[in-house]
Simulated assay, not measured.
Amino acid sequence: MSSAVLYLAIVAVWAIVLVPMWLRRDTETTTITRLLHKRSDEAEAEEEAPEELPEPRPRRRTTRATVIARRRRRTTGLTTLVITAAVVVATGLVPWWTIMPPTILLAGHLALLRVAVGMDTARRLAAAHARAAEAHHHTAETVETTEPAEVIELVPADDVFDQYADDRRAVGE
């Protein structure tokens, strides 16, 4: 019974690793097909016209959201694996040491996440510094290209109307 559970755990771990690989194999098969066709063309005489291969689909750009989603899925899968292993060990179906591989995998994953967060922070800071430097350069360039303003000197007038003066007169008198 314990060997069956151990085999089941091995299958579960490999499924976690292999299923994403199987889902991404379309792009890899086109690369392998190209390599095989290239080798077969080199082996044959180059007198024949090479068979045109279809262009592979362009890879989608990896966005920050997809990276975070991938990290979240891995963390969830490894945590579920550790919890499952702990339950199986607690029921006494397998020896205690079977919880060690999933725990080590989860700890390594969390350590890599910690490094990745530091790298993401450094990348964001570098981008912010680059934007600030560009804005400063643009501002300095704008200041240099503008013409200085003309300063007009205001001369005080001697005949200033004072409404509280003793010799007040109406407008038009």
Rank of each mutant, 00 (worst) to 15 (best):
I68A: 14
I68Q: 11
A69W: 04
R70D: 15
R70F: 14
R70I: 07
R71Y: 08
R72A: 15
R72S: 10
R72W: 04
R73M: 08
R74L: 14
T76I: 15
T76A: 15
T76K: 09
L78G: 05
T79E: 08
T79C: 09
T79H: 03
T80S: 11
T80C: 12
T80I: 09
L81D: 04
L81P: 02
L81A: 15
L81F: 15
L81M: 15
V82Q: 03
I83Q: 01
I83V: 15
T84E: 06
A85Q: 04
A86H: 03
A86P: 01
A86F: 11
V87Q: 01
V88D: 05
V88G: 06
V88Y: 03
V89W: 01
V89T: 07
V89P: 03
V89C: 07
A90Q: 04
T91P: 02
T91Q: 10
G92T: 03
G92P: 06
G92C: 07
G92D: 05
L93E: 04
L93C: 02
V94W: 02
W96A: 15
T98R: 02
I99F: 02
I99N: 01
P101H: 09
P101R: 05
P102F: 03
P102V: 02
P102W: 00
P102R: 01
I104K: 02
I104H: 01
I104E: 02
L105K: 03
L106V: 00
L106F: 06
G108Q: 05
H109M: 10
H109C: 11
H109S: 14
L110H: 04
A111H: 08
A111K: 02
L112M: 12
L113K: 00
L113C: 12
R114K: 09
R114M: 12
V115A: 12
M119Q: 14
D120L: 03
D120H: 07
D120Y: 01
D120S: 14
T121F: 09
T121D: 11
T121V: 13
R123L: 08
R123P: 00
R124L: 10
R124H: 10
A126L: 08
A127K: 01
A128P: 00
A128Q: 08
H129D: 13
A130P: 00
R131T: 13
R131F: 05
A132P: 00
A132G: 01
E134R: 15
A135C: 05
H136R: 14
H136S: 13
H136K: 13
H138N: 12
T139Y: 13
T139V: 09
A140S: 11
A140Y: 00
E141G: 14
T142Q: 11
T142W: 13
T142E: 14
T142R: 12
T142H: 11
V143T: 08
V143P: 00
V143Y: 04
V143F: 05
T145Y: 06
E147M: 06
P148R: 11
E150C: 01
E150S: 09
V151Q: 10
V151K: 05
I152G: 05
I152F: 12
E153I: 12
E153C: 05
E153D: 15
E153M: 09
P156S: 10
D158V: 07
D159W: 00
V160K: 04
V160T: 13
V160C: 06
V160W: 05
